[in-house]
């Protein structure tokens, strides 16, 4: 299964979805006007991955900003990851936030309360 690797732009995050390594990584800014267009291929990749997931799937989400239009798409990513966990992969979510960025910590906690996956909140220095 092919990986998805994308560099970040001013409005979209860098992406590394690696099936061989069981790694799902989203980093940077996610503030596009049309988030669905950006996230659809990622959701499709996760669907395919759920059929042959690794025993462990590491998820790293390190966002500096995300808009409300991305928030729904990110929730969809987590929902796909829930399915992957149900299918037997041990899915671990690392939610990174910059120190003092309480809003980003709280955003992670919002997802944590909706999604049945283990979340680890990790503070990083600015």
């Amino acid at each position: 299964m092919e990986s998805i690797v994308r560099d970040g732009t001013q409005k979209t995050p860098s992406i590394e979805f690696d099936a061989e390594a069981g790694k799902v990584e989203i980093k940077g800014r996610s503030i596009p006007e049309n988030s669905i267009e950006f996230y659809n291929p990622l959701i499709a990749w996760l669907e395919e991955y759920s059929g042959n997931a690794k025993p462990t799937t590491e998820v790293n989400i390190q966002l500096e900003y995300f808009n409300t239009s991305s928030s729904k798409c990110i929730l969809d990513v987590f929902k796909k990851l829930e399915v992957i966990a149900k299918a037997g992969s041990d899915v671990k979510v690392n939610w990174f936030y910059e120190e003092d960025d309480e809003d980003m910590l709280e955003a992670g906690e919002d997802y944590q309360s909706i999604i049945k996956l283990p979340f680890k909140m990790i503070e990083i220095e600015e």
Binding site: E33, N34, S35, I36, N67, T68, S69, S71, K72, L75, D110, I114
Partner: peptide
């Protein structure tokens, strides 16, 4: 975020909230 379908324009009123 969890229950409502978003419109094609995205948001769903979340921006102002």
């Amino acid at each position: 975020l969890n229950n409502k379908e978003f419109s094609e324009k995205g948001g769903g009123g979340l921006g102002m909230i």
